[in-house]
Amino acid sequence: MSKDPRLKITDSIRDALIGSNINDDLELIGQLRRFVDSLKTIEKLVSKFSKAYDNDCYLAAEKIRTQTGRDFDTLSHTVNQAKIVAQQNRPEIPDIKTIFEEIANLASEADNNLTIDYAKNTISIDTEPIELDELYLGKFCIVLNISELPKMNSLSPYSIIALDPNPAATNEDVTHPHVSCEKLCEGDGTVPIRKALSQGRLADFFTIIQSILKTYNPDSPYVDLDEWDGVACYDCGYTTNRDNIFYCELCSNDYCQECSSYCRICDETTCLGCGGECPSCGEFICKNCLTECQICKTQMCKGCIEEGDLCLECKTELEDLENIENEEQDNETCQPVVAKIQVICIISL
């Protein structure tokens, strides 16, 4: 009589959970090795320290003393890490019957949505279609890879595959606000997920994942639901992601890179409509930094406006005019004097 296929996967799950505990032991061995290495380093320093004193090398002794302080910090850190790993409560590995009941329960609850792939060593469940804030994201398949269970503390042993994908316009790897490249950002679910898996509570694991997929956390998504279809440039309508959009403080709208610039005077980002080229120097200036020449009424940047709110051209013209007027005035005051001198000369002759 052939073995019940569900028993095969049950065996596999139990082996993987035992493997997970073995991984914890290997991590502890690594921590203990680092602890022993730290001790050896300190032992060497003790020997160098006494030699330095024996030979009256006080400067060297001081250096070793400083080094010892640093090495004690490393030792203390290593001890704490080893202690954490050693004192961790190892989850009790569920027996075959319990795991089998979990799978049977999964099968009865998931109806036809449960798939056990013995060849790939996976258990997967299809979710119902998911919609968040009226945005349709479609069905997802939660695939638990039994072979990766032993590494569950460092790697995610499951994938979230969009069956009817409606990815974010700006990143097609993001199929859900909390799923990127088929990996879920677990947030508040991190600890319960690890605990459920390490204790072989498969039904709880799938329930927790579905609860996360059905919830939107606006504080930490890969892509905001508001920006799922991208952010459109107010000017040209080009859709792109938030990182490539620039906000114009003057008109309070979003613009793409092509439709925005920055003011060379105040450095503020502005759209092309809220600024323009200074006719004098040709630099892009926002309208707040434009000043009007009092004579020709041309608007230009503050850098190109001279004293008295005049552009250079008008100021030069004004100065020329003033010079001419001054010369004329000078001429007028000089003429009677010349006449007087002429009269005096004639009389004296």
Partner: peptide, 13 residues
């Protein structure tokens, strides 16, 4: 007895 929230917030770690 198992109690599981229907809504759990995911977040980028």
């Amino acid at each position: 007895v198992t109690i599981t929230a229907r809504k759990i917030e995911g977040a980028i770690s």
